[in-house]
């Protein structure tokens, strides 16, 4: 575990990385979009509206994943007093929020032609809305308590409160009667999605993950520059 780190050393890597990530992102996204919009088949029941899934599901996964990572980093950062982990969390949060909103909006657009409603106060959808609120709380806390010890403590508390919601989102469709259908992709049991649809889904997930990484690098570099400008060689 590194207690101290040298911003200059990290910056020399992270400042060069974005252009490579951007390059990869554009390639993977083009492949993903071609597969999702042209090559993948229509669904037997939903026909072409199933294509919304290739944006909706990856966005939801990424937003949940980022929140989990943020919580993990904040908890470890809190226990071992690693300031760098808090800055990484702070830089990850904006893309998590964006993808969370994307998941809700595309879900709404998908819901209208399939379910017949834009919005339902169903357990899955409501818990995703709560996650958006936690993301906003988290980012607002950083705005209020600019990079000082108070910000670390408060954002740590917000993540630890918010993480309780994550398993609820995941299992809401299994625990209760919901309008939202249960998960199609299962790690431990057979997935109920045809392989020709799984492939574009995973490619789009990789593209969104790269986009998050890109935004993260940009945000993180800004944080490092701020530290350098303050003349601190270590956090």
């Amino acid at each position: 575990m590194f207690k101290y780190f040298e911003p200059n050393k990290i910056f020399s890597i992270t400042s060069k990385a974005p252009k490579y990530v951007l390059f990869l992102f554009v390639i993977i996204l083009s492949i993903g979009l071609m597969e999702a919009l042209i090559f993948s088949p229509e669904d037997y029941k939903q026909s072409h509206s199933v294509r919304i899934m290739y944006v909706h599901v990856p966005a939801a996964w990424i937003s949940l994943g980022i929140f989990s990572v943020i919580t993990f980093l904040s908890v470890v950062g809190y226990v071992f007093k690693i300031r760098n982990f808090f800055l990484i969390s702070k830089s990850l949060a904006p893309s998590g929020l964006v993808f969370n909103i994307v998941a809700l909006v595309t879900g709404s657009i998908w819901g209208k032609p399939t379910w017949g409603t834009w919005w339902a106060w169903d357990a899955r959808i409501t818990s995703m809305l709560i996650l958006v609120l936690f993301y906003i709380m988290y980012l607002v806390a950083w705005r209020i308590y600019e990079n000082n010890d108070k910000a670390f403590k408060i954002t740590f508390i917000i993540t630890i409160l918010g993480i309780v919601n994550v398993p609820i989102i995941k299992y809401s469709v299994d625990w209760w009667n919901t309008l939202h259908q249960p998960a199609s992709i299962n790690i431990f049991s057979k997935s109920t999605i045809h392989i020709s649809m799984l492939f574009p889904l995973l490619t789009m997930t990789a593209a969104f993950a790269l986009f998050s990484l890109l935004i993260f690098l940009m945000k993180y570099n800004t944080e490092l520059i701020k530290i350098k400008n303050k003349g601190l060689d270590r956090l």
Binding site: P41, K45, W115, L179, Q181, P182, T192, I193, H194, M197
Partner: peptide, 9 residues
């Protein structure tokens, strides 16, 4: 309410 099965026709 649709189910979790996705497949081509």
């Amino acid at each position: 309410k649709h189910d979790e099965n996705y497949m081509p026709p």
